[in-house]
Design a protein around this nucleic acid. Structure first.
Lengths: 348, 348
DNA sequence: CTGAAAGCGCTAACAC
DNA sequence: GTGTTAGCGCTTTCAG
């Protein structure tokens, strides 16, 4: 592996000069720059990243801890999200480190990554109401950006779709289709988006004179199987719903199946909506009415925010360790609440 | 951040001794070891990985380059695969670096990762007939392990399900159900598993006196949409199939939809099989008959192989750079061909 | 059993 | 403009 030293030897300059020439330092003669770069080129020089990182005291790496167990996430969704993160990170010269949390020690992995200085910042997703990850990182001043807001925390960067508004759209849509008995199936209320959406749905219905019956709420679902089970229960209710709002597409698929298995005609006898608009949503039968989340783009945005945060921190501590008074201001620029779209298909 | 130096200062020993004590070097007094470890513990010492890596000249990191564009892969499948890799890597103290290839420069990213010494080895998946990635890595002696065999390359570690045998099972199953007009929809033949499975299907059918009509082969599909389109074409054929073999589950879903949209009763009037057994396969309607691939476990296995390979290389070049004569032998232990299972559900 | 010194490859402060 | 020196944090000879 060719190093600066090798080049230095070959062009008969010092290692320092070579380093500077490569960096394009202004106080190196044009001539030297040319010579050095040429040599580097033909020798196939590539800097040793570990050496650079050791010296810079930064890892140029962004960390993502994958949700505990596949159960915790609509996978196709996470995959796209990751792709968005990875692409954006690469754009800015960052690597992407993906770690998998073991069941009962999600925090441990964050601590390990932090203290081993393996990453410069984290992307958080599926934020919780009182998110321990966010609290931890916040408390030690470690950069992170989240896909999703966090209750009881203000000054941190996030991107999120306005779940409340989204549910307003869903409510409006279903009511306009004549539904009055409306159910929903959602993840546990500890998952913030679940709480927000539920609240949004409740309000959206109430403002249209419809009450969201507590018995019409299936709580604690993540995937298709859960969705199926909850939908079955709902449909067996003495006063069953004519519409089911799934809080993600997988849940909605499960609900559709439950309806089908009972001989209901989806779309007419039972309406089902989802959330996310994963690729399969359009390909399901019937195609799913759902709230679109441009998940890859969201991954990119949240990554940009994170990188901003990292570099801001770096430039600050690099200078004097002083935290600018305008912290709150600069952060607020990185709080994005996206306006969602409802994609209407044949499941409603 | 606490360093060896800090500990050394505190316990009044040299940095060297502290390092050795922490490493559990036998020639350090019990007493010193105790003292040092205690101090390290309470000071919250964690080694700086960049420093370790620079000095060890290894990154303790495994690289995975995600397939170009989401189109290239059944995503839920890739996600699980990645999880298997990540978990196994963590088990052995390796990090997982995930990179995303841009459209026309997949090789570039491999080169970059190699020359920047960012990873110690790669996991390859969806191998191609004449896989450029494998050839490149092989030619420079860089460790890798593949999910899938590679035509024209022998001595490298891989894990694969026996696609030929799998198709034998599928053929047997369909024929035993009375099908004689059987079609299939597969990815391009440059994808090795596609070639292998197609060959297997052809043979499986022929040995039962059935010819695989070239017009019954839909070529170049990856996802549900492609599967749908090809299935439509097949079903519009003057002599349409009564069974369609999808080369992955997404393709099969597409075929099921195409059949449904034509009013065919899936399972009786049109049989459809898949491959992979992604979680959704059991939840589709009708549930999909498919060949099971324990993808997460495969991820773990292939990662183990890779780590073996890395460590073997390291111990060799570490000693004298000599390659043992038994290379071929040790590699062959890492060539696993798994026996697949057919999961029969209602789509056939 | 312990420590001093060297070095992994790179960058940066400080000369000349 | 360029070189010398120092240092990032760690491991590893080589001496004692």
């Amino acid at each position: 592996m060719v190093t600066l030293k090798d080049i230095a030897q070959k062009v008969d300059r010092s290692v320092t000069t070579v380093s500077r020439a490569l960096a394009g330092c202004p106080d190196v003669s044009k001539e030297t720059i040319r010579i050095v770069r040429e040599a580097a080129q033909e020798m196939g020089y590539v800097p040793n990243s570990m050496a650079q990182r050791l010296q810079k005291q930064s890892s140029d790496t962004i960390g993502v801890v994958a949700p505990v167990s596949s159960k915790g996430y609509a996978e196709p969704f996470f995959c796209e999200f990751l792709a968005g993160i990875g692409e954006q990170a690469a754009q800015f010269g960052y690597d992407l480190l993906v770690a998998y949390a073991q069941e009962h020690n999600e925090m441990g992995i964050y601590r390990k990554l932090v203290s081993g200085r393996k990453v410069d910042g984290f992307i958080l997703s599926r934020t919780l109401v009182d998110d321990p990850r966010a609290h931890y990182l916040h408390s030690i001043g470690f950069p992170f950006a989240a896909f999703g807001r966090i209750d009881g925390m203000q000054d941190y960067p996030y991107v999120e779709e306005d779940g409340e508004y989204a549910m307003e759209l869903v409510a409006e849509h279903l009511v306009s289709r004549g539904h009055t008995r409306i159910a929903c199936i959602c993840p546990p209320q500890s998952v913030l988006y679940s709480k927000v959406r539920l609240e949004g749905l409740r309000r959206g219905l109430e403002s249209r004179g419809i009450r969201l019956d507590p018995e019409m709420i299936g709580m604690g679902a993540f995937d298709q199987e859960d969705g199926y089970a909850h939908a079955c229960t709902l449909l067996e209710h003495p006063h069953p719903p004519t519409a089911i709002v799934g809080f993600n597409d997988l849940i909605a698929f499960g609900a559709i199946n439950a309806g089908k298995d009972r001989g209901l005609r989806i779309g007419s006898e039972l309406a089902v909506t989802g959330f996310d608009d994963i690729p399969m949503a359009a390909m399901y039968r019937p195609p799913l009415t759902t709230v679109r989340q441009p998940i890859k783009e969201i991954g990119q945005m949240v990554t940009s925010s994170l990188i901003d945060t990292i570099q801001e921190k770096y430039s600050k501590t690099g200078r004097d360790g002083l935290v600018a008074e305008s912290h709150q201001d600069t952060v607020s620029h990185r709080q994005l609440l996206l306006r969602p779209n409802l994609v209407v298909r044949n499941s409603t």
